[in-house]
């Protein structure tokens, strides 16, 4: 085991499928007990990296280890300490929730009694007790995801890999799943998750690595990355559309750039260096000019702004431009 508290270490990992380079010189370090988010559009290489770290794929070159176990030379030991919830829910639809969990426990060689006990614990924890003995094909999408996550936790793994854990879920189920993941982290589990949802990485991850075209193009905390997208934004919403030009004139005094106007939303937005100190002055100036406002806000850049700043295109555009050339299905 590594002494320095590293749960995951990736050095210069490359992965090619024929002439397609899915990963290029990827370096990544994940400290124990933290959550790292791999953020990137479809086909960026996120799933490929997760597959390498969970021993499903061999790297073409480079080294990777989890809790000090090399992914190639110590695959068996490594598999004992990890859990994986892949993109497609890996549950048997014809088996009940309980049977699914017991089967996974037996395949982890927990022994019949322990496997049963562990299944009960997890069913309780994931609010699946009532449907425990129903075939899982009758489960809702959110319940399936919870069962799948429960299955990845049967062996009480120290490092958990979640590949797009909430894709395709409704907002309510997504919030539920986020709560469960945050609880696991509080208990000390190290989590590596991939996501296309900028909001999800922001909410769950201590550290974010942005992946694009198989390479890590930026890393840092959510707020560090946001700083790279530039300054903050002050947004003013006026009560009547007629007041928008007047508001824009006022805002112009506080910024070197032209305010952005949205005539549908009746808003004017400027980017400023230190928004919080200017906010009061903006209100006073607007009041002095008799501009009636219905809403006023200081907005941090979103990770969408970050992606735009880093790659020159939004995450959605990047995803669209790579459709059809996805090599690993992420």
């Amino acid at each position: 085991m590594s002494a320095n508290g590293e749960a995951i270490a990736v050095h210069d990992v490359c992965k090619s499928f024929g002439s397609v380079h899915a990963l290029i010189d990827v370096d990544l370090e994940v400290q124990r007990g933290t959550v790292t988010g791999l953020l990137g559009p479809n086909g960026a290489g996120k799933t490929t990296l997760v597959k390498i770290l969970t021993t499903l794929l061999k790297p073409t070159s480079g080294r990777a280890s989890v809790l000090g176990f090399d992914v190639q030379r110590q695959a068996r030991q490594l598999r004992n300490v990890i859990g994986l919830a892949g993109q497609s829910t890996a549950i048997d639809e014809l088996l009940t929730g309980r049977e699914n969990l017991e089967m996974v426990g037996r395949l982890y060689h927990l022994g019949g009694k322990v496997a049963k006990h562990r299944a009960d614990e997890l069913l309780d924890r994931f609010s699946l007790v009532e449907s425990a003995d129903r075939q899982s094909k009758e489960y809702s999408g959110g319940m399936r995801r919870r069962l799948d996550l429960a299955a990845s936790l049967v062996s009480t793994p120290q490092v958990l890999f979640l590949d797009e854990p909430t894709s395709g879920l409704d907002p309510r189920s997504r919030l539920d799943l986020w709560a469960v993941i945050m609880e696991l982290v509080r208990e000390g589990t190290t989590v590596l998750l991939t996501t296309q949802y900028l909001e999800e990485a922001d909410r769950l991850a201590d550290q974010i690595a942005v992946i694009d075209h198989g390479a890590v193009i930026a890393r840092g905390t959510a707020s560090e990355l946001k700083k790279r997208a530039g300054s903050e934004f002050i947004m003013v919403r006026v009560l009547e559309k007629g007041m928008l030009p007047q508001a824009a004139n006022v805002l112009l005094r506080f910024s070197e750039e032209e305010p952005q106007l949205d005539e549908h939303e009746n808003t004017a937005t400027i980017s400023v260096a230190n928004g919080s100190s200017l906010l009061v002055e903006v209100v006073r100036a607007l009041d002095a000019e008799n501009v009636v406002i219905s809403d006023l806000g200081l907005r941090q850049p979103t990770l969408d702004d970050v992606f735009l700043a880093l790659t020159g295109r939004t995450a959605e555009d990047a995803a669209t431009s790579r459709e059809g050339e996805s090599v690993d299905g992420d």
Partner: peptide
């Protein structure tokens, strides 16, 4: 097809099983 094998392969079970 359903990705069940991905889970099995990430577990310390015998692959031939």
């Amino acid at each position: 097809q359903k990705g069940m094998v991905d889970r099995y392969r990430s577990m310390p079970m015998a692959r031939s099983a």
